[in-house]
């Protein structure tokens, strides 16, 4: 009886492992961050950068428009906060 119960639990986990969609609740994952905070498409090379607003590490809003008229270097890299 316990053996079959364990098998049922394992089978359920197998189904979850194979059937769950990819990070549907991922509010903190890097892809979700891009989707929710930087919803910009269709930017062409050479065109002015569209304004966007992000949060600083302290949680304060930061707008790209604040840097208008000043040289600005934007880099993109993976950041993992452990």
């Amino acid at each position: 009886m316990l053996r079959w119960l364990a098998t049922a639990v394992i089978a359920l986990l197998f189904a979850l492992d194979l059937g769950l969609p990819y990070t549907p609740l991922g509010r903190r994952g890097p892809e979700a961050l891009v989707r929710s905070d930087v919803a910009i498409t269709g930017v062409s090379v050479g065109a002015p950068a569209p304004d966007l607003e992000l949060r600083t590490l302290e949680g304060q809003p930061l707008s790209l428009a604040e840097f208008r008229g000043h040289p600005l270097l934007v880099t993109f890299e993976r950041s993992v906060d452990w």
């Binding site: 053996r3 194979l18 892809e31």
Partner: peptide, 29 residues
């Protein structure tokens, strides 16, 4: 894997979980 904090690992977590479940099944039976 589901909650997305480890999305940079891709499917590694799923594959590991599947392997562990297989071994668990073997230990049970």
């Amino acid at each position: 894997w589901f909650f997305g904090d480890y999305a940079f690992l891709g499917n590694i977590l799923r594959v590991e979980a599947g392997g562990m479940l297989l071994f668990a099944l073997a230990f049970v039976w």
